[in-house]
């Protein structure tokens, strides 16, 4: 009996951890994609997560049906991400990773303030994708939206893997991240690939912000916190490796949830920073990243 509740409790923590972890994975994927194309960290990545949730909420309040609002918000954020690269990153940074980092830090402030003015200061919630009570699993509760989080994350990862492995566009993205000059020599427009990487990263971040918005609420300020989490997840996995980014996200989510459950909920947000510093000090290539891994 006692043992049974302990198992249920652990299971509950694991479910919660894998739920946030899946969202971290989506945001972390965005980090690795931009890193692959530019060699730089896009510190505006968290704001794309925020924009996804907020534009989704806005679209539903305008009466757009939920599925359309989700797709629309992802596409809109992707366009914003690509436009951000075109009008800010490219002209100012001209390809220098350090400058790209600066521009994205500045860009994140601009995007956050623009969101404040556009959407207002209030916290908003998105309607759950399917209504209904939580499901029971061995004594633990699983919210229906959590299943959506997992399903949509899994789908995004599979689609991304297929695009990168099978399509000419994906191969061109990989080629550009492996050897930019060689990619240009076979006719790949490397600058366009960088723009595409920002758009794709924004779409993934937005997707994360949308699937989790019914569970956690969203507001103009949620981007910076998620940026740190996603960055930590990407670093934990090993920057530049998409599979590892997903692993890093899930592990970070689990660590947070178990820390909050068994130590103190106050420590939850510190986990990402501890992980970030720990990995950078002890294993800079990441847990899953060997030195020879392919950047994407």
């Amino acid at each position: 009996m006692q043992c049974g509740t302990m198992v249920a409790e652990l299971l509950q923590f694991i479910i919660a951890g894998l739920k946030s972890g899946a969202v971290y994975a989506l945001v972390a994927l965005g980090f690795t994609i931009v890193f692959g194309a530019t060699g730089a960290i896009n510190f505006a990545q968290g704001e794309f997560y925020m924009l996804g949730g907020m534009t989704g909420v806005l679209l539903t309040t305008w009466g757009v049906p939920l599925p359309l609002a989700v797709v629309g918000a992802v596409m809109l954020t992707a366009v914003i991400g690509a436009a951000f690269e075109l009008v800010a990153v490219r002209p100012i940074a001209s390809g220098d990773p350090l400058r790209i980092i600066m521009v994205t830090i500045g860009g994140s402030v601009v995007l956050r303030q623009a969101a404040l003015h556009l959407f207002g200061p209030d916290e908003r919630a998105l309607r759950p994708f399917t209504a209904g009570p939580s499901l029971r699993l061995l004594g633990a509760a699983v919210e229906r939206q959590t299943l959506w989080v997992w399903a949509i994350t899994a789908m995004a990862v599979v689609v991304l893997a297929v695009v990168y492995r099978q399509t000419m566009f994906g191969k061109a993205m990989r080629a550009t991240s492996i050897r930019r000059d060689a990619a240009r020599l076979v006719g790949i427009d490397a600058s366009a690939m960088v723009t595409a990487s920002f758009g794709l990263a924004a779409a993934l971040g937005a997707l994360g912000g949308l699937v989790v918005a019914p569970l956690t609420q969203t507001a103009f300020y949620v981007g910076s916190g998620m940026g740190v989490k996603g960055f930590a997840a990407a670093i934990l996995g090993g920057l530049g490796n998409p599979v590892a980014a997903v692993g890093g996200g899930l592990i970070l989510g689990l660590l947070e949830s178990l820390t909050a459950g068994y130590l103190d909920p106050l420590y939850k947000d510190a986990v990402a920073l501890v992980v970030l510093l720990g990995v950078l000090f002890l294993r800079p290539q990441g847990l899953l990243g060997g030195r020879g891994t392919e950047k994407v």
Binding site: K171, A175, V186, I188, G292
Partner: peptide
């Protein structure tokens, strides 16, 4: 300047990009 981690076939396909 090959795309080292990619397969021979992928390198060739990219040649026709």
């Amino acid at each position: 300047m090959l795309f080292g981690p990619m397969t021979v076939l992928e390198n060739l396909e990219l040649g026709a990009y």
